[in-house]
Design a protein around this nucleic acid. Structure first.
Length: 517
RNA sequence: GUCCCCAUCGUCUAGUCGGCCUAGGACACCACCCUUUCAAGGUGGCGACACGGGUUCGAAUCCCGUUGGGGACGCCA
């Protein structure tokens, strides 16, 4: 077989859907696996206004994920242009050929007439197949219809008996009856062409060898195969991927059903996690473009592309019974269409987060710091890091920082000592309520003032000594100290926290808390 | 409604031509341990072959049916 060429053909809608990414990923992987090329073609036949504006987020999404295209926008190849809006001449030529060979005909039925037929079919409970009543198969008829001022479209003259057979790489042998096929319109009265014609023309012209696409296109295949044959072209190998389903259900995942997903606990949790981060750094939150169905969401809150891609790879595909961590190289080496599952797989936000956590924890500190810095910058805190540095915080926080934006859970280390906000409940419970809290905190303040060196171990030793000397339990002081130092009831290791803040700032914060008791 | 597709734990899946499956792994969940909080970690646990018929010495695996779920039925892509 000649070179493998796969493609993904998004229409410029303004955002990249998580299910679309998976389809693109599988196409990309298949091309890479077989030393072929991956093409990005823009399906903008539907006269859009701001194509570039609506396309940018999609291109950015792919770039972020590292799914690079060999030909397409910004990557010229021998098969351009890669925008369908610039290829209309090709479609018109194909229509002429179809007409000339009798595989298509001009039709002059109006929308109302079609509707009447459709309703009649429905009333008789039979499948609606156009009667070809306004088919102009001779020049006379054509002139007559046009004299009436009817608009003319071009329809495919589909076979009405027999079956269309083809082999699907995922589903095996397929056999669909021609009789259920409509005489699909391929060209509108204004000369513009429709999807089914355009894809076939482009896939052929771009020498696409494997069409790997979502299951919803399965029913488009016969009509496309008809066009290939009519034009005397060799058809590509087809592979229909099951779609990605909603969390906890088998319905197709759709960006239009966000309201419903928000009621799904796992989805809502991920969404809230992202929203919290977005609010903290002032990203504009538009639910339709900032939510877990849209890839941009993951980039915005600081996910790792490798984690997202690895998760998506396993959504409908598996190598064996245990391998789950794949480097790009490993996925390219092992990917195969044969191992794609036939049933729809539902999107699981919790598992995606588990993958993210794994990848994040594996990263060396410097890289985690790099991942976190943009968020500190956007929050205006980058230059307010304590002396110990951001790396110390990142290290101490460990797996509490799951996505880049989680650094914002630790802003207390960046805020001015006299502006530290207190968690009211914690302040009440740990400092105001216990009778001895103030006295103990005062006592420990003095101990802390003299700790040498001011490091984690020494601080721990000092506190343990203090506890022993006073004959109290460690729990009686630790919480008060934490709230006084960080304003919060929870956080990472207390001794690390004190060390990171440094002696001066700890004392200042203690004094401020004491003053408010 | 018509046509098509699909069917293993809550979820993602392994189960390649039927025996090694009293069905394996991961996520989630539960319990205990660890522990200055929250996480993490450790140990253990819960948990599935949709159902009914065949075929066979033997079926999660093959065949038929039922049920359930989903998709497509556009002058959208």
């Amino acid at each position: 077989m000649s070179q493998v060429r796969t493609r993904f053909a998004p229409s410029p809608t303004g955002f990249l859907h998580i299910g679309g990414v998976r389809t693109a990923l599988f196409n990309w992987l298949y091309a890479r696996r077989h030393g072929g090329r991956f093409i990005l073609r823009i399906d903008d036949t539907d006269q859009e206004r701001n194509v570039m504006e609506a396309l940018q987020p999609i291109l950015d999404g792919f770039r972020w994920l590292g799914i690079e295209w060999d030909e397409g926008p910004g990557a010229d190849g021998d098969y351009g242009p890669y925008y369908q809006s610039e290829r209309s001449g090709l479609y018109a030529d194909a229509v002429e050929k179809l007409l000339a060979s009798g595989h298509a005909y001009r039709d002059y039925a109006t929308a109302e007439e079609l509707q009447t037929e459709r309703e009649a079919a429905q009333a008789e409970k039979r499948r609606f197949i156009y009667s070809r009543k306004f088919m102009a198969d001779t020049d006379e008829k054509r002139r007559a219809f046009e004299a009436e001022g009817r608009p003319g479209v071009v329809r495919l003259k589909m076979p009405r008996e027999g079956a269309c057979r083809f082999t699907d790489s995922i589903r095996g042998e397929m056999e669909l009856e021609w009789a259920r096929e409509q005489d699909h319109v391929v060209q509108r009265a204004d000369g513009s062409c429709l999807y089914n014609l355009a894809t076939v023309v482009d896939d052929h012209a771009m020498a696409i060898s494997h069409v790997i696409r979502a299951e919803e296109h399965l029913s488009n295949t016969p009509r496309q195969l008809f066009i290939y044959e009519a034009l005397g072209w060799e058809a590509p190998q087809f592979a229909h991927l099951p779609f990605v389903a909603e969390p906890g259900s088998k319905n197709k995942l759709s960006k239009r059903k966000l309201d419903k997903y928000m009621k799904q606990p796992d989805f809502a949790k991920l969404n809230d996690h992202g929203r919290k981060i977005a609010e903290a750094i002032g990203i504009e939150i538009k639910p339709e473009s900032f939510n877990p169905v849209v890839v941009d969401f993951y980039e915005q809150v600081g996910f790792l592309p490798d984690a997202v891609v690895n998760y998506l790879l396993l959504l409908g595909w598996a190598l064996d019974d245990k391998t789950e961590w794949f480097t790009r190289e490993a996925m390219i080496e092992h990917f195969s269409l044969e191992r794609v599952n036939k049933a729809a797989a539902s999107f699981d936000p919790q598992k995606l987060m588990a993958f993210q956590e794994h990848y994040m924890v594996e990263l060396p500190v410097e890289q985690r710091v790099a991942k976190v810095m943009p968020f500190l910058e956007q929050a205006g805190l980058a230059d307010k890091a304590p002396a110990a540095g951001v790396a110390a915080i990142v290290e101490a926080a460990g797996d509490r920082i799951k996505v880049g934006g989680d650094i914002l859970d630790f802003v207390d280390f960046f805020t001015d000592d006299d502006a530290l906000p207190y968690d009211e409940k914690a302040f009440e419970k740990r400092l105001r309520k216990p009778e001895d809290a103030a006295e103990l905190l005062k006592g420990f303040r003095e101990v802390l003032a003299g700790v040498e060196p001011f490091e984690t171990d020494a601080i721990e030793g000092a506190l343990k000594g203090f506890v022993e000397e006073r004959g109290i339990k460690i729990g009686q002081i630790v919480h008060a100290v934490r709230v006084a130092a960080t304003g919060k009831a929870v956080g990472f290791g207390l001794f690390e926290a004190l060390w990171i803040l440094g002696r001066e700032r700890c004392l200042k914060r203690f004094d401020r808390a004491l003053a408010q008791l």
